[in-house]
Design a protein around this nucleic acid. Sequence first.
DNA 1: GCATCTTATGACACCGATGTCATGACACCG
DNA 2: CGGTGTCATGACATCGGTGTCATAAGATGC
Lengths: 343, 343
Amino acid sequence: MSRVLNGDAPVNARTREAVEAAMATLHYVPSSAARSMRSNKTGLIGMITGAISASPNQDEPVGLPEIFLVQGVQRALADAGLTLLIADTGGHSEKVGELAHTLLRHRVEGLIYVADYHREVQLPAALRGTPVVLTNCFDSVGTPAVLPDDEGGQDALVQRIVAAGHRRIGFLTLPDRQAARPLRLLGYQHALAAAGVAYDPDLVLTGAIVDPVHEYDFLWDALDRLLRASPTAICCANDKMALRVCALLRQRGLRVPEDISVAGYDDYRIITEHMDPPLTSIELPYAAMGMRAAEKLLRLINGAGKANEDARELVSGPVVWRNSVKTIQQVVTPFKTRRNDIS
Amino acid sequence: MSRVLNGDAPVNARTREAVEAAMATLHYVPSSAARSMRSNKTGLIGMITGAISASPNQDEPVGLPEIFLVQGVQRALADAGLTLLIADTGGHSEKVGELAHTLLRHRVEGLIYVADYHREVQLPAALRGTPVVLTNCFDSVGTPAVLPDDEGGQDALVQRIVAAGHRRIGFLTLPDRQAARPLRLLGYQHALAAAGVAYDPDLVLTGAIVDPVHEYDFLWDALDRLLRASPTAICCANDKMALRVCALLRQRGLRVPEDISVAGYDDYRIITEHMDPPLTSIELPYAAMGMRAAEKLLRLINGAGKANEDARELVSGPVVWRNSVKTIQQVVTPFKTRRNDIS
DNA sequence: GCATCTTATGACACCGATGTCATGACACCG
DNA sequence: CGGTGTCATGACATCGGTGTCATAAGATGC
């Protein structure tokens, strides 16, 4: 009887006991299908992801961001008593429409759309009318989105490296066309400007291309050119690149961080913590983004703060300082400066 | 009309067109809740995972295995037209019962239970009556399970290293109590026996403990003792350990693979491919396990081959040979042996 | 031309939980 | 003792598809 389950009407104690006993012996489990048909509330939130690539040659850590996103989303949804229905494209983006349809058939109350890296996407038209929050991506029609703060992140990292005494900071960027690339570059430039360091274009080079075959050679050439600009530190577009750069530097007889400092991006801890030396990086806060996305979606569904929920939301992660960046003995300290003046 | 949707009865062409037009203009999406109530088929498969640890101090690559498992499961289910409902414990194993209940409310037709590493588990009693396949874990009551072939994997890897000419092969094992540890040891011993190499207990040491604080020191001490047994190659329990071992060896002035060879386990490609040198490892085939688990579950549900489906199923992955293991010039070739006999 | 069969479609009960209404039991008050 | 209110519970329509049965229209055979 629904009355004893939901407690929405007074029930005699003896009756309640009898009903509960019957439910126990029959291993009764209420059907959410029947409940949702009547109440029009399924308690389901859908998630469409293309993050898991089906490409067998893919050596990127794709999927890992997503797992933390899922974790964050799940945590926020569990608090609200909702269940997550995950539909994965398996790398085939043309399946998105079909997957969306499946989720709609299950009457999800809202939907979180996740991309494998920061980029622009286009939602299928079928999702009109369903609350959607984009995560790690954005579209051209202003769908609410949760994004990593690439500009602020790179800014914070470079500021910290500047604070460690570095002035000539190389920057090996993401491949062309990646949405994060210009944002990171802005952050890099802003950090330098804030410290009064002149921007030197020779210190900024594209460090990766999408083509996995020539990836190695490309990075080798980029590093080669970068070293001619004699940086004391190198910012890499991600931890994987940093791992390779360290190996390449070692092959040239350069020690990290004694001869040159290296920093990554993402704080992919399996790399950063176990490298030798451990890698300075900045966290890409996927779990936090997942939580923020879920919370945003819940606000959308509940109709609260409609006006504000159209905005894109940026999420920042902390700089994680490790030994791969050396703190430079400042050549010009206030004290020394004075002595120099005297002499 | 259900007839035009499902085609289970003859429909006049004109009527069909009219209905389809109406469905299109109204953006009609059938409700799987209503359908499933009548037909008792939800098209949902549940998945309970504890792999995503909520522990913030966790530096293991937990979650990554799971993402590939999910991928494999999803791929197999999509082919069967089923949808995956994921319930995550968020690291709190006490939530399993509650999550199972949620899945049962949604009337999942079967369930895949995933552990974060190879180990024994106990299913909540509520799941009696639901087809279940354990993945990466097993229980004491013979629930169908899909497991990594730890014994065969270590065997294959060591055999390959023996084939490269190594005879003194160190083995830094998993922590005590891990189910895979004794299996891997059996594989190691079997490979040696097959090659006629005597087993030397001094070459086998526990390489890791669960305590993350003393993990580093523990590995240092283990490696220190292992090196006194003068191995020419070291098998590590996983790629992360191999990464650290390489760093420790380098600190001692030993070059990999020139002075000593190193192999990992898992083929965690973000590590193995980007290390310097790239790491020889053996793949832990999580995606394949996911597919196998899903297929096994489908057979269970369809009632086919009931007799056989109780068995545990082992899944193997290939040895991935990279430069971290050196091929040794065989000191004792058949030819040389003969010459020695003559002299 | 009438019986029979096929084809197309309307009508309706049903799945399980829930909200509403009606009914019945009982206490309390004047 | 009858009227009124509260409490406990049975009865029933409802949600949206689906399977079954009934009905009607048209085709075919003798």
